[in-house]
Design a protein around this nucleic acid. Structure first.
Lengths: 219, 219
DNA sequence: TTGCCTACCAAACGATTGTCTGGTAGGGTT
DNA sequence: AACCCTACCAGACAATCGTTTGGTAGGCAA
């Protein structure tokens, strides 16, 4: 209960684990200046430490970026599992996917902006892993939309691959528009976004059924 | 007819104006490596010139980026005027906007990718001009969607600002997905994209009318 | 022929970069 | 008291960066 490292728990309460502090500072700095433009110096300044000292916690600058991404990957994996566990219609699954995901992006603007804008700066195996992850997302959404079509809730002529791109685009760009402290709560925006996405997929030429009352419906 | 500079016309026909050559090389290099990561050296290598020699054509590295953007701005301004000149329904205007714009992005992937990914690296007045332009686009699309609502082709409860974001997102992200030489022609993709966008805006709760036969319809 | 202008080379500049090395203060363990 | 380990400092490292300067080959005009 006192944390994994016993002696670290005695440090002043206000200071979290220094390693986390470095990660958080890096997220902020990389988000504001861009990974390539931001320097290790900037991150060190933000933490309040000489730049050389950072190498006590990280191996390289790219390693710092990769670690941020790893955290994001972890959290997104959790979200995906939660959605997968729900027993609901394909349409409702799509809606849940859109809403949950939009909300997460809105609540983690910096992290998700980094994920979309700076992934090019990874190299080798780490780059491949990111691109794999991205590809799996596309497939997941494509399958989801195919399922919606199979349920008869969308136009059978809908190109599910394109539709998936469209849906992902709309969600992914959220963090680049959103400014914190706007008039609308993130929850509200996420709801609207989910509506638009489901509407876009399901609008098919007059074939739409009324929205099933929130519960599940038989296939 | 021999070009603006008489003596330049005698240069080997295969070599275009060197200034254009520099711009094209910069577009390619900045697109591949990112503005911050790419060096003036890289651009010079691509042109086949020492890096110092580039400063015969440009003032600074940022100036080079800004000049690329200026070209893009010019072309987009032309497109906007062409669309504005058409006398068509708001829905068809939206569709035309989406189709034309999508197509332009698909045919100018490098240029438009730069426009979306590297605009942060401009400073001062040039940055402000870009952000102004961006803002004007949002307003234009918002107004367009309001017009669609006023025509009764979309749900009156539709939040036109959000819908505009959504539409712009979907279009803007196109160049980051598209790979040249894929199975589908850019024209086809643009058509599909326009359909999805119009569908998303117009799907409003069963109020949709059949698509007006391509011509104009009275208000 | 003389002179100018364009287009480029060759070489250097100061600044900044990511990273490494060696040292050390201080708390914890033995 | 002796030792070790973590967390950091101080300072240097080579490399790379954008940019500048001075020079020059060659075509064009007078």
């Amino acid at each position: 209960m006192a944390g994994t490292k016993a002696h670290a728990a005695d440090a002043p309460r206000v200071r979290r684990n220094r390693e986390d502090e470095v990660l958080l500072a890096a997220i902020d700095v990389f988000h504001r200046k861009g990974y390539a433009t931001a320097s290790i110096q900037d991150v060190a300044d933000s933490v309040g430490v000489l730049k050389g000292s950072l190498y006590h916690y990280i191996d390289t600058k790219e390693d710092l970026l990769a670690r941020i991404f790893a955290e994001s990957d972890e959290q997104s994996h959790t979200i995906m599992q939660e959605i997968a566990a729900l027993e609901i219609t394909a349409v409702e699954r799509l809606r849940t996917f859109a809403r949950t995901w939009s909300l997460w992006y809105l609540e983690n603007v910096e992290r998700s902006s980094l994920y979309f804008n700076e992934w090019r700066h990874l190299t080798g195996e780490r780059l491949e892993r990111i691109m794999d992850q991205r590809h799996r997302y596309e497939l997941y959404v494509t399958d989801l939309i195919d399922a919606v079509v199979r349920e008869g809730e969308a136009d059978p002529d809908l190109n599910s691959r394109y539709a998936a791109f469209f849906v992902l685009s709309a969600i992914n760009v959220l963090p680049s528009w959103y400014k914190r402290g706007g008039p609308d709560a993130p929850e509200h925006i996420a709801e609207v976004w989910a509506d638009m996405i489901v509407g876009m997929v399901c609008h098919s030429e007059g074939r739409r059924k009324p929205r099933s009352g929130g519960g599940r419906s038989g296939t």
